[in-house]
Simulated assay, not measured.
Amino acid sequence: MTTRTEPSATALHDIPGPVTRRRHRIYSVASTVLILAVIGWVVFLLLDTGQFAAAKWTPFAYKGIQELLLRGLGNTLKAFGYAAVLSLVLGAVLAVGRLSDHRIVRWIAAVLVEFFRAMPVLVMIFFVFVALRVQPLPALVAGLTLYNGSVLAEVFRTGINSVDRGQREAAYALGMRKTQVTTYVLAPQAVRAMLPTIISQLVVALKDTSLGYLITYEEFLHAGKLIASNLDYDLPFIPVVMVISPIYIGMCMLLSWFATWVARQERRSPKTKAVEVAPAEPGTLLPGAR
């Protein structure tokens, strides 16, 4: 009976020895102490300036302030929902244009992508709001869609092109059309590689909804600004930031968690495990073929 032993090293790096492990522990402890010291210093400053005084937090118990914050949060999620869906659609359309066999279509799509990627989001939002004279919500959604859609177009195009060239050639050899190759062969394999970048860009879109307060859209940050500037409540700026910031961070973390969950489900799904083009049986119809 043979006993299998674990290798002492891999092809990429050596397993750390006792000295290296001890050094890593020292670095970890030192980093933890430094982080705790910074957090303690910040908490001390907040205590020293009276930011945790009960009088400064009591207004959050008022129903009017709670309703204002909830309404602002709902408006933020509404703008993000519209912008996320439209950005994905626009990104897919522009990616198809960039991958087109027609030179004029590729050129137009490339110009649009590069133009909207280069334009600051705030400039596009102000242009739609002021020049086109539309309401704050459509102006905010339009600006976010044009920018994030153009970025996602490059993500989609790169993801499709990153699939092994042999998959594409094998699909064409079976007589599949380009639409079929992209839909049934390339996209299923590319989606797992693209998903983290897509979610990261959607997180950017979620955070950029805060630009809506500059065009008087009553989103979450706008609600916090109204509360902090209302002298009737005597509520300073810092407590408002301490309430709004964790909610923004929580929404971004929830979106990242959702991306991780979707990626895990994709890896477990038999439909997305090593999607490859296999030789077709005689008489077998290809997807969408007549």
Results as ranks from 00 to 15, higher is better:
8 S>H: 02
8 S>G: 15
11 A>H: 09
12 L>F: 12
12 L>A: 11
14 D>W: 01
15 I>M: 08
20 T>H: 03
22 R>F: 10
28 S>G: 09
28 S>Q: 13
29 V>E: 01
32 T>D: 00
34 L>W: 05
35 I>W: 07
35 I>Y: 07
35 I>D: 01
37 A>W: 07
37 A>E: 01
41 W>F: 14
42 V>G: 07
43 V>S: 10
48 D>T: 00
53 A>F: 06
58 T>F: 05
60 F>V: 10
61 A>Q: 09
62 Y>D: 15
68 L>A: 13
72 G>M: 09
74 G>I: 10
77 L>A: 10
77 L>Q: 04
78 K>M: 14
82 Y>L: 15
85 V>Q: 00
86 L>H: 04
87 S>Y: 04
89 V>Y: 06
89 V>S: 07
91 G>V: 13
92 A>V: 13
94 L>C: 12
96 V>M: 14
98 R>G: 14
100 S>D: 12
100 S>M: 04
100 S>A: 15
101 D>F: 10
103 R>N: 04
112 L>A: 14
112 L>V: 14
113 V>K: 05
115 F>R: 08
115 F>E: 03
116 F>L: 00
117 R>D: 00
120 P>M: 02
124 M>E: 14
125 I>C: 08
128 V>G: 00
131 A>N: 12
136 P>M: 07
137 L>G: 02
137 L>H: 02
139 A>I: 04
146 L>C: 06
149 G>M: 07
154 E>Q: 14
155 V>L: 05
155 V>S: 04
157 R>Q: 11
158 T>V: 11
158 T>W: 01
159 G>M: 10
160 I>D: 00
161 N>H: 06
164 D>F: 08
165 R>A: 11
165 R>H: 11
165 R>G: 15
166 G>S: 08
167 Q>W: 04
167 Q>D: 09
168 R>L: 13
169 E>K: 02
170 A>P: 08
171 A>L: 06
171 A>R: 03
174 L>C: 12
174 L>D: 06
175 G>R: 07
180 Q>F: 05
182 T>Q: 08
183 T>D: 03
188 P>T: 11
190 A>D: 12
190 A>I: 06
190 A>Y: 07
190 A>P: 08
194 M>L: 12
197 T>L: 13
199 I>S: 13
201 Q>D: 00
203 V>Q: 13
206 L>A: 02
209 T>Q: 04
209 T>M: 04
212 G>L: 02
214 L>D: 01
217 Y>R: 02
218 E>N: 11
227 I>S: 00
231 L>M: 12
234 D>I: 10
234 D>L: 14
236 P>M: 05
239 P>S: 05
241 V>F: 12
242 M>R: 08
244 I>T: 12
244 I>W: 03
248 Y>K: 11
249 I>C: 08
250 G>Q: 02
252 C>K: 00
252 C>T: 15
253 M>D: 09
256 S>N: 13
259 A>R: 07
263 A>S: 15
263 A>Y: 06
263 A>H: 12
265 Q>C: 06
266 E>H: 13
266 E>R: 13
270 P>C: 07
272 T>R: 05
272 T>E: 03
273 K>A: 11
276 E>M: 09
279 P>K: 01
281 E>P: 00
283 G>R: 05
283 G>M: 05
283 G>H: 09
285 L>R: 15
287 P>T: 10
287 P>V: 08
288 G>V: 07
289 A>T: 10
289 A>L: 09
290 R>T: 14
